[in-house]
Amino acid sequence: MRQTDFWQRLEQVFGATYAESVAADQNITQLDGLTIREALARGVATVTVWRAVCAAYPDRVPAKLR
């Protein structure tokens, strides 16, 4: 998954403003407690980060975006 696709999906799910907050401020258990931004900066594959977002927010991410 390309990063542009990742960010578009994140904004679709959370809205533009809240998506940035989620990416910078929320520590995700499935990413060993890293934030989305930290995980991407450390080279974690975007598809891995996206799957972690889906697992962390199952009620927010619609099935068509999983």
Rank of each mutant, 00 (worst) to 15 (best):
L40H: 07
I28V: 09
I36W: 08
A56R: 05
A39C: 07
E11G: 09
R42Q: 10
E11Q: 07
V44F: 06
A16Y: 09
K64C: 08
A45K: 11
L40Q: 13
V13F: 08
C54E: 02
G43M: 00
T29Q: 12
A55K: 04
D32Q: 08
L10N: 01
D59C: 13
R42E: 09
G43P: 10
W7C: 05
A41F: 14
V44T: 05
G43L: 08
V49K: 01
T29L: 13
M1Y: 07
A24E: 15
Y18M: 03
D32A: 12
L31M: 05
A45Q: 06
A23L: 06
K64M: 08
V47C: 12
A63I: 03
I28S: 06
K64R: 06
P62W: 10
Y57I: 00
R51T: 10
T4N: 15
V53N: 03
I28K: 01
R9Q: 07
Y57C: 02
T4M: 15
D32L: 03
V44P: 04
D59L: 15
T29W: 13
A23H: 12
A63D: 09
L34Q: 08
S21E: 12
V22S: 02
Q30R: 07
V53H: 07
T29A: 15
Q26G: 10
D5T: 09
R60I: 01
D59S: 13
N27G: 15
G33D: 01
A16H: 11
V22Q: 03
M1E: 09
A55S: 08
R2H: 12
C54T: 01
A24V: 10
R60A: 14
R42M: 05
A39S: 03
W50K: 00
L40F: 11
S21R: 07
L34Y: 09
Q26S: 14
A39R: 01
A45V: 08
A23E: 12
G33R: 00
V49R: 04
P58Q: 05
A23T: 03
R42D: 05
E11P: 01
N27H: 15
T29M: 13
R42K: 08
C54G: 07
A52Q: 04
S21Y: 12
W50R: 00
F14C: 02
T29H: 13
R66W: 05
T48M: 08
V13E: 06
A52C: 07
L31A: 02
E20F: 11
K64T: 07
T35H: 06
I36D: 03
T48A: 11
R42P: 06
E20Q: 12
V53S: 03
E38A: 12
W50F: 03
A63M: 12
A52S: 11
E20W: 14
D59G: 15
D59R: 10
